[in-house]
Amino acid sequence: KELVLVLYDYQEKSPREVTVKKGDILTLLNSTNKDWWKVEVDDRQGFIPAAYLKKL
């Protein structure tokens, strides 16, 4: 499984997104879309802008 580091706080703006904090380490589920990556946060799955994440 691939992990990503959150570079900036992000507040979800729709039900398909998730809220994260800078410094969080998340499981990356899908990065095929270059703009929005799907991650897992506390048993929730959702999207975050790829620019907010860095692969570890």
Results as ranks from 00 to 15, higher is better:
Ile48Met: 13
Gly23Met: 03
Lys13Gln: 15
Arg44Cys: 05
Lys22Phe: 05
Leu28Pro: 00
Asp43Val: 09
Thr19Val: 03
Phe47Gln: 04
Trp36Glu: 06
Gln45Lys: 11
Asp9Pro: 07
Pro49Gly: 02
Asp42Ile: 10
Trp37Arg: 00
Val20Glu: 00
Asn30Ile: 07
Asp24Ala: 12
Ala51Ile: 13
Glu2Trp: 11
Pro15Ser: 13
Trp36Ile: 04
Asn33Ile: 06
Val20His: 02
Lys54Trp: 10
Asp35Ala: 13
Lys13Asn: 10
Arg16Tyr: 14
Trp37Ser: 02
Pro49Leu: 05
Ile48Thr: 09
Asn33Lys: 07
Val4Ile: 05
Ala51Gln: 10
Val39Tyr: 00
Val4His: 01
Lys38Cys: 09
Thr27Asn: 12
Pro15Cys: 08
Arg16Met: 15
Lys1Trp: 13
Glu2Ile: 14
Ser14Val: 05
Gln11Phe: 15
Arg44Phe: 06
Gly46Ser: 04
Arg16Pro: 06
Lys22Trp: 04
Leu28Ser: 02
Arg44Trp: 12
Gln11Lys: 15
Asp42Glu: 14
Leu5Met: 13
Val41Ile: 13
Lys38Asn: 07
Glu40Tyr: 06
Glu2Val: 15
Tyr52Asn: 10
Thr27Arg: 15
Lys34His: 14
Arg16Leu: 14
Phe47Arg: 03
Ile48Leu: 15
Asp24Val: 08
Ala51Asn: 12
Leu28Phe: 03
Leu5Asp: 01
Leu56Cys: 09
Arg16Glu: 14
Leu7Tyr: 02
Leu3Tyr: 14
Leu26Pro: 01
Lys38Ala: 13
Tyr52Arg: 04
Ala51Met: 15
Val6Asp: 00
Tyr10Cys: 02
Glu40Gln: 15
Gln45Asn: 10
Gly46Phe: 11
Val41Cys: 08
Asn30His: 07
Lys54Asp: 07
Thr32Met: 14
Trp37Leu: 02
Thr27Ile: 15
Gln11Glu: 15
Glu40Leu: 13
Gln11Ile: 14
Ala51Gly: 14
Leu5Phe: 07
Ser14Leu: 08
Leu3Ile: 08
Lys55Phe: 07
Arg44Met: 07
Lys21Asn: 08
Val41Met: 10
Pro49Glu: 03
Asp43Ser: 12
Asp9Thr: 05
Asp43Glu: 13
Arg44Ile: 08
Asn33Gly: 10
Leu28Gly: 00
Asp24Ser: 13
Ile48His: 00
Ala51Tyr: 15
Leu26Ala: 09
Leu28Val: 06
Val20Met: 02
Gly46Val: 15
Gln11Arg: 12
Leu5Thr: 06
Phe47Asn: 04
Asp42Phe: 12
Gly23Ala: 03
Thr19Pro: 02
Leu26Val: 13
Lys38Val: 15
Pro15Gly: 11
Leu28Asp: 01
Ser14Pro: 05
Arg44Ser: 05
Leu26Arg: 03
Lys34Tyr: 08
Ser14Thr: 12
Ile25Lys: 05
Leu56Asn: 03
Trp37Lys: 01
Leu3Cys: 10
Leu53Ser: 04
Lys21His: 13
Tyr10Trp: 10
Lys54Arg: 12
Asp43Arg: 12
Gln45Glu: 13
Val39Cys: 07
Phe47Ile: 09
Thr27Cys: 09
Val6Phe: 01
Leu26Trp: 06
Val4Ser: 02
Asp9Val: 02
Tyr52Pro: 01
Asp9Arg: 03
Asn30Ser: 13
Lys54Tyr: 13
Lys34Phe: 08
Val6Ala: 07
Phe47Tyr: 15
Leu3Lys: 13
Trp36Asn: 03
Glu40Gly: 09
Asp35Arg: 14
Lys22Pro: 02
Asp42Gln: 13
Lys21Leu: 07
Thr32Lys: 13
Ser14Lys: 08
Lys22Thr: 07
Thr32Gln: 12
Asp42Asn: 15
Pro15Lys: 09
Asp24Arg: 10
Leu29Tyr: 04
Val39Ala: 02
Leu7Gly: 01
Lys34Thr: 11
Thr19Phe: 03
Val41Lys: 15
Ile25His: 04
Gly23Cys: 06
Leu56Glu: 04
Phe47Ala: 03
Trp36Thr: 03
Val6Pro: 00
Arg44Leu: 07
Lys38Gln: 11
Ser31Gly: 11
Lys1Pro: 15
Tyr52Thr: 08
Val18Trp: 07
Ala51Ser: 15
Lys55Pro: 13
Val20Pro: 00
Asn30Tyr: 06
Leu53Ala: 11
Thr19Asn: 05
Glu2His: 10
Ser14Ile: 05
Lys1Phe: 10
Val4Trp: 06
Trp36Ser: 04
Lys34Glu: 14
Phe47Glu: 05
Val39Arg: 00
Leu29Pro: 00
Thr27Val: 15
Leu56Pro: 02
Ala50Met: 06
Lys55Gln: 08
Glu12Gln: 13
Trp36Phe: 08
Ser14Phe: 07
Leu5Trp: 07
Ala50Gly: 05
Asp9Leu: 02
Leu56His: 06
Val39Ser: 00
Glu40Ala: 11
Trp37Asp: 00
Leu28Tyr: 01
Arg44Glu: 05
Val20Ile: 05
Lys13Cys: 08
Thr32Arg: 11
Pro49His: 04
Asn33Asp: 15
Trp36Gly: 02
Lys21Cys: 08
Leu28Asn: 01
Lys55Asn: 06
Gly23Asn: 07
Asn33Gln: 10
Val6Cys: 07
Lys54Leu: 14
Ile25Val: 11
Gly23Ile: 00
Val4Met: 03
Trp37Asn: 01
Asn30Val: 09
Lys34Asp: 13
Ile48Ser: 03
Leu29Ser: 03
Thr27Phe: 11
Lys13Asp: 06
Leu53Lys: 00
Leu56Lys: 03
Glu40Trp: 08
Asp24Pro: 00
Lys21Glu: 06
Val4Asn: 00
Glu40Asn: 06
Trp36Cys: 08
Lys55Ser: 06
Asp24Tyr: 08
Thr27Lys: 11
Ile25Met: 06
Glu12Thr: 09
Gln45Cys: 09
Leu56Gly: 03
Gly46Lys: 04
Thr19Ile: 03
Glu40Val: 11
Glu12Met: 15
Lys13Trp: 05
Asn33Leu: 09
Val39Ile: 10
Asn30Lys: 07
Thr19Met: 04
Leu56Thr: 06
Asp43Pro: 03
Tyr8Gln: 15
Glu17Ile: 03
Leu28Arg: 01
